[in-house]
């Protein structure tokens, strides 16, 4: 039983091939990490899954159904949520409005109010700032908002692109701790990280280098390959 299948994915920008050959599967309920150094193809892989860039070759399937040439908003409506790199919240909208935009009544029986309460329960700081314009918040608060926004459409799969980027170690710990809490509620998470401490969070994952999978396995396997971490992650 798999939730997400990526098979022989190849993606590029013009002549530049960022992802050469990437395959992996994500099982329901797990926290799956995509690790790798800068330029190894992590972000491009996520963007391909989200429909933000069209693959040159390969197959992406959600619950056995191939996504094909589907539009990004339709991917979101299938229950795949993407927290993009650099957060990219809507700076001129309030926290409330940022969250409301992502609410998709077609995906859930829950009311907007009920889901807002769930998200604010996960991130009490956001509730305190619910009327504030999002662009005026700190980086950590914006990251919480980006994650909260991705939860508003009741996804089956939550994809995060380097949520620790630019955050203080304390804030990174807090974000990772919240991801565990979200995972404990049964949501499947696909986490892209350069920060190798994400392995502690993972149930399994792959290490990418130069657009190919150089290593795949569960948490024990990933954390035992110290030399690979040194080679590819520089830690």
């Amino acid at each position: 039983m798999t939730l997400l299948t990526v098979e022989s994915l190849k993606v590029g920008y013009g002549d530049l091939i960022a992802v050469r050959d990437v395959s992996f599967t994500v099982k329901p309920g797990e926290i799956f990490v995509l690790l790798g150094a800068n330029g190894s193809g992590k972000t491009t892989t996520l963007r391909a899954i989200s429909g933000l860039i069209r693959p040159i070759a390969g197959r992406i399937a959600m619950e056995g159904e191939a996504l094909g040439a589907i539009k990004p908003h339709a991917v979101a409506r299938l229950g795949i949520s993407h927290v993009p790199e650099g957060r990219r919240i809507f700076p001129n909208l309030s926290v409330d409005d940022n969250l409301t935009v992502s609410y998709l009544p077609t995906r859930t029986d829950k009311s907007l109010r009920a889901i807002l309460d769930e998200v604010y329960g996960l991130f009490p700081r956001l509730r305190e700032r619910h009327k504030q314009m999002a662009g005026t918040m700190s980086g950590g608060e914006q990251q919480m908002l980006a994650i909260g926004r991705a939860l508003m459409n009741c996804p089956k799969l939550l994809m995060l692109d380097e949520p620790s980027l630019g955050l203080s170690p304390v804030m990174t710990d807090l974000v990772f701790e919240r991801l565990e809490a979200i995972s404990n509620q049964g949501l499947t998470i696909l986490l892209v990280e350069q920060n190798a401490s994400a392995i502690d969070l993972a149930t399994s994952g792959v290490i990418l280098s130069n657009g190919v999978v150089s290593m795949a396995g569960d948490r024990a396997a990933l954390s035992s390959t110290q030399y690979i971490q040194k080679a590819y992650l520089g830690v």
Binding site: S50, G51, L52, K71, P72, H73, V75, A76, R77, S81, H82, P84, R88, I89, F90, P91, N92, L93, D97, N98, T100, V101, S102, L104, R149, A150, M152, N153
Partner: peptide
Amino acid sequence: YQLQAVRDDEEAAAASGV
């Protein structure tokens, strides 16, 4: 909200289901 989300960040709006 959708219009404003598109104004602020088209790609993030699309990824949010807009």
